[in-house]
Amino acid sequence: MKKVKKNMPRFLTQLFFFALILMISVNKNLIEMGKAGIAFLSSASLHALCPFGGIVSIYQFATVGTFVQKIHQSSFVLMFIVFLMAVLFGPVFCSWVCPLGTFQEWLGKIGRKIFGKKYNKFIPEKADKYLRYLRYVILLWVLYAIGVSGKLIFQEYDPYFALFNFWTSEVTVTSLFILALTVIASIFVERPWCKYACPYGAVLGLTNLLRVFKIKRENTTCISCDACDRACPMNISVSASGVVKNHQCISCMSCTSDQVCPVANTVEMTTTKGGVTL
């Protein structure tokens, strides 16, 4: 039996990207105010550093040869990098990089302290099951609305943009309201935006069906303690899976033998064959 340990590499990676995006956003604002800014740091807009900007620009790029307003070539580059990572390892962007995901996760620690074992179990399973597909509806709406208008309409609703720009006039009341809702919901549910509303998570979630490195559970050594189920922020029943192909998996690796699984070599991210897809 192994002692459960904190996923320090993930925590440090999340912290790094959160701090980086925050500092870039502040730097951009300093420079726009005519101040000197932080010399060694980029002053790019958050739109230029968001890989989802690449996704929403595909249609316009293919038909007109230009990007959606406020989106730049860097978004395309990041889109390809994140897509490569997702094909190899699943949606690691969501669990290791995305600052909004990190922010919700940190807020969730407060909820976990308040509610203990009840935390992340407030939504009835029946409703939850259908709500998980809401993000695909949002994805289709975003792609359609941006496709026909050529404008970054999603910015008006985007809690990620609001989080790192709430002090600027660029942020709409609607996005601040959605951010506030996300903050409150994070106290009850882990990663509510990721689970129910994130259109980019919806895209990346599909790679769980074809990723090269899969989360696999070795049935012969599993002691059915359900530790993996309890650790999963997305409420996936890992103990009932041989290979996790759930579209909600974010590849956080919390369920693995490297982290919470008490038996070595039982739940792992691996290319080796084995496990049964349920």
Binding site: H72, Q73, V77, I81
Partner: peptide
């Protein structure tokens, strides 16, 4: 986990570095 953290950083910054060298990285 440690390998994953390193792979993510390498892919991100390696990708940005490579596209910068090819003049494909533009944030404006």
């Amino acid at each position: 986990s440690w390998a994953m953290g390193i792979i993510i950083l390498v892919l991100f910054f390696g990708g940005i570095g490579a596209t910068s060298a090819l003049n494909l990285w533009s944030t404006t």
